[in-house]
């Protein structure tokens, strides 16, 4: 019983750490949705490209890890802005579902392009991070790092949105799209900047994921769906809600995986998501209207 409890506790704590990674993943998507009102179905593919960038720079060209990370983040940020400029902007005025689907087309494109350029092999950055031991429980250092980075990213984003002029403009335009242009804000520019920040957050997530997982072209499909579920369950555009939802999901996966197979953890998490949609369609932190 004693040993059982300690494994359960380890699963719970690992769930919390996984929650940090998921929260970080959800953060960029949430920002883009909240401001531009578009769901990037291809968000996880941006993360995948970020992982490849870091892998390529670090493992192939021997760029030190920190500069590789920074370049990776910058590359994905540029990609986010490019995505908005080339793909989203032309369909901004058409039906919302077209906006969703067009990024789905980008998903196929990026996934196939990665296959074309990088091949289907699983690639590992080849960096062994230590495993932390605490009270006979084992935690991966990469996860702890991801958890801390997620918290830092969220705080930084919060400060940026509330303390800077640009952040205020971003928040304002998400509240009223029609009025802000009249107040002298150029929505095109704001959208572009928001997309770049969203991409940058995807890049940050990529840096932390590449430490833990092998990168391959289809990796986006394995954590893409869960990222959308987290954003929707938290209330699309609601970042605090997304954060809470990330930790709920990660507990389902981690503790569910502890008791049953890991897939069952995901099944229960998705089933719970569907159930929550019926109970609180506006997100877990919403008030009843």
């Amino acid at each position: 019983m004693e040993i059982f409890d300690i494994f359960l506790l380890e699963a719970i704590l690992n769930g919390i750490l996984l929650g940090g990674v998921l929260a970080l993943l959800a953060l960029g998507l949430n920002l883009v949705f909240g401001v531009i009102d578009v769901v990037w179905i291809c968000y996880a593919e941006l993360v995948m490209l970020g992982m490849y960038t870091v892998y390529w720079l670090f493992a192939q060209y021997g760029v030190p890890l920190i500069p590789a990370f920074l370049l990776g983040i910058l590359a994905v940020a540029a990609l986010g802005a490019l995505l908005h400029y080339l793909v989203i902007q032309p369909v901004l005025s058409s039906a919302p579902i077209n906006q969703l689907l067009v990024t789905g087309g980008v998903l196929f494109f990026l996934q196939a392009l990665a296959t074309l350029v990088f091949g289907v092999e699983f690639r590992n950055i080849g960096l062994r991070l230590p495993v932390l031991e605490f009270n006979e429980m084992y935690f991966s250092f990469a996860r702890v790092l991801a958890f801390v980075a997620a918290l830092a990213g969220m705080v930084a984003l919060y400060l940026f949105l509330t303390r800077t002029y640009l952040g205020t403009a971003i928040r304002a335009i998400s509240q009223d799209r029609a009025i802000m242009p009249l107040m002298g804000v150029n929505p095109k520019k704001i959208y572009l900047i928001t997309s770049a920040i969203g991409g940058g957050l995807a890049g940050l997530a990529a840096c932390l994921l590449v430490l833990q997982y092998d990168v391959h072209p289809a990796i986006g499909l394995s954590f893409g769906p869960i990222t959308f579920m987290i954003c929707v369950m938290g209330g699309l555009g609601n970042m605090v809600g997304g954060f809470v939802a990330a930790f709920i999901f990660s507990q389902f996966i981690s503790v569910g995986g502890f008791f049953f197979a890991i897939e069952w953890g995901y099944v229960v998490a998705f089933a719970f998501f569907i159930l929550m949609m019926f109970v609180k369609p506006q997100g877990i932190l919403s008030r009843r209207r």
Binding site: V102, G104, G105, V106, F108, A112, L116
Partner: peptide, 15 residues
């Protein structure tokens, strides 16, 4: 992946 790349690109253009 070449077919997928062209396919994805065409889809985006279609939409």
């Amino acid at each position: 992946g070449l077919d997928g790349t062209i396919y994805g690109l065409l889809l985006v253009l279609f939409i």
